[in-house]
């Protein structure tokens, strides 16, 4: 069984590397994403996590003929139609040759490189988490509830900060200078971040992005941030109406032009995109599902059909 694991791991890493290459080449050339925040979030994450989910799908699909054969679901024995020297991706007929250095060295090398990226990202993430904890400790309770705390800043700031139980931090400058209506919008928006676990998900996205050069995934991360903000704007709009959310955005943005604060930064033009999305929301459609569904079906079909044979051929070729 370890032989099968060895070959499955080997195949997964080879396919993962191919998926990585496709993302690195195609993602920066992608047309700007359209549609609802849900669609754009799904598509951006599909690209970002491709080196993980693509090999899982293809290898699982490639194992299917063997599993189906072992369970007697397929007529005849798939493996017996191959020559004996052939490496099988099969549960019932595990590969005979194993312990070959290349089947371990290649995946371990690739995983080592990936791990190095993750460690660098993890170190930054840990530092950010430590700093966030200090900032929350230095904040003061508010009258809005235990989830909302105040920081003593003239700049109008509203941030959600933290991982499992994020805290909303509002600046005293925001409270004193925004209208009550706008403040309601800000609170509803930030609480939507908490309810959606946005900061935790972005934190994970940051790790997935660490596997790529920044110029490849910069736009994917910016897409995700914009979609996330628009989704929270939409939640806030449920109670106040879309135009009022847009007005609150413009109000806080104009205050920030007077007192530019510390270097918080999201994608350029994000304010405009958010206001436009609120005033002219795109018509709801499910057509965007077609492209990812086609890709998924193709990958499964490729895994079961040619993928299975190609992987077995590749193994046989590389290991002899």
């Amino acid at each position: 069984m370890t032989d099968l694991l060895e070959l499955a791991l080997f195949s997964a890493v080879v396919i993962g590397a191919l998926a990585w290459l496709v993302v690195a080449v195609v993602a920066p050339r992608r047309r700007p994403a359209q549609g609802s925040p849900v669609a754009r979030t799904f598509l951006a994450r599909a690209w970002l996590y491709a080196p993980v989910w693509v090999p899982l799908v293809v290898v699982a699909a490639a194992l299917m003929p063997g599993v189906a054969g072992a369970l007697g679901l397929l007529p005849g024995d798939h493996c017996l139609s191959h020559p004996a020297s052939h490496h099988h991706l099969c549960v019932a007929h595990p590969p005979e040759e194993a312990g070959i250095w290349m089947t371990w060295a290649l995946p371990l090398g690739a995983l080592g490189v990936a791990l190095a990226g993750l460690v660098v990202c993890g170190r930054r993430a840990w530092q950010q988490w430590r700093l966030a904890r200090v900032l929350i400790q230095l904040s003061e309770p508010s009258s809005f509830g235990p989830d909302v705390r105040l920081i003593d800043q003239d700049a109008p700031l509203a941030v959600t900060l933290g991982l499992l139980r994020p805290t909303v931090l509002l600046s005293t400058g925001l409270l004193s200078r925004t209208s009550p209506g706008a403040l309601d919008v800000v609170l509803a928006h930030e609480r939507a971040h908490v309810a959606r676990r946005d900061t935790l998900l972005s934190f994970l996205d940051q790790f997935a992005a660490a596997l790529f050069p920044a110029r490849v995934v910069g736009r994917l991360l910016a897409d995700l941030t914009l979609a996330r903000e628009q989704a929270c704007d939409a939640v806030a709009a449920r109670s106040t109406g879309r135009a009022r959310v847009a007005a609150a955005l413009a109000e806080v943005a104009s205050l920030n032009m007077v007192t530019p604060a510390v270097g918080l930064s999201i994608a350029a033009g994000a304010l405009e995109a958010r206001v436009m999305h609120l005033l002219y929301p795109p018509a709801p459609t499910w057509r965007w599902v077609l492209a990812p569904a086609t890709v998924l079906v193709t990958l499964v079909a490729a895994g079961v059909g040619p993928g299975h044979s190609v992987i077995e051929f590749l193994l046989t070729f590389l290991l002899h």
């Binding site: 950010q128 966030a132 994000a270």
Partner: peptide, 23 residues
């Protein structure tokens, strides 16, 4: 410092801000 931690990657890590300030 928190905002700058992932500033060069286009992401924000564990931070979500209402509107961008350096935009």
């Amino acid at each position: 410092a928190i905002a700058a931690q992932f500033g060069d990657t286009g992401g924000q890590g564990l931070l979500a801000a209402f509107v961008d300030i350096a935009e």
